[in-house]
């Protein structure tokens, strides 16, 4: 590999570099680029966390001949109720759609619409959590009673915690937006919130399939 010798005054390098820095408020965009990569990497690491528990669930499920497993006492645990979960899933996916519309409204400079869609998202998110709470209370299996309970409650519990954190995050974003923190060209916080909320939806797709359909 030959040494790259660049003679001082070489036009090629200067132009390429200058073009990259053409942006008027490049300071903001640099920051935004960094933070966007940061939130994406954070979500990647969060996916790994869920993946580990999903691996544990698949491993434990495959290591016994029966699923739902047969517990002490000789009886087999019941399967989960798909119907209620499907309804709750629609609530959650609906909140993903409303969040998308909220962002679109913001980008199209429609602040009132943004707030309507944001509140709808938050309400649906809380609705999903309420649905989960109802399901938890009506389930016959316990967290510590079997590996089925262990994996189900831990995974859906972690997911629920993420939804709860997301609801809090969205509320904060709402208050910030009202206080004028974000403008029509600088709204990275809202982008981050939307990405996180969609991530929470994607995780639920996996969990719904793994626990209710499989």
């Amino acid at each position: 590999m030959a040494t790259t010798t660049v003679v001082p005054g070489d036009a090629h390098d200067l132009d390429a570099v200058r073009a990259r820095y053409e942006n008027v408020d490049h300071a903001y965009h640099e920051q935004r680029d960094n933070r966007l990569l940061g939130i994406l990497l954070f979500l990647v690491s969060d996916v790994i966390l869920f993946t580990m528990f999903i691996f544990a669930y698949i491993y434990l499920r495959n290591s016994v001949p029966n699923w739902p497993p047969i517990v002490e006492g000789g009886h087999q645990l019941p399967r989960f109720d798909v119907n209620f979960a499907a309804f709750n899933s629609i609530v959650l996916f609906g909140s993903g759609a409303t969040m998308h519309f909220a962002m679109e409204s913001w980008k199209h400079l429609n602040r009132p619409a943004f707030f309507r869609w944001l509140i709808a998202t938050i309400v649906l998110g809380i609705g999903f959590l309420a649905g989960q709470a109802y399901e938890y209370s009506s389930l016959a299996i316990s967290w510590a009673g079997s590996t089925m309970g262990a994996t189900f409650f831990t995974l859906t519990g972690m997911h629920g915690f993420h939804v709860f954190a997301g609801v809090v995050f969205l509320c904060i974003l709402g208050f910030q937006a009202r206080a004028g923190v974000y403008t029509e060209s600088k709204y990275f916080g809202l982008t981050a919130g939307t990405l996180y909320w969609h991530f929470v939806d994607v995780i639920w797709v996996a969990l719904f399939f793994l626990f209710y359909l499989w």
Partner: peptide, 16 residues
């Protein structure tokens, strides 16, 4: 909390 992941006596797996 006694949540079984690893205890083989309760369906868990040390190898997990």
């Amino acid at each position: 909390y006694g949540v079984p992941f690893y205890d083989p006596a309760r369906g868990g797996s040390p190898i997990l």
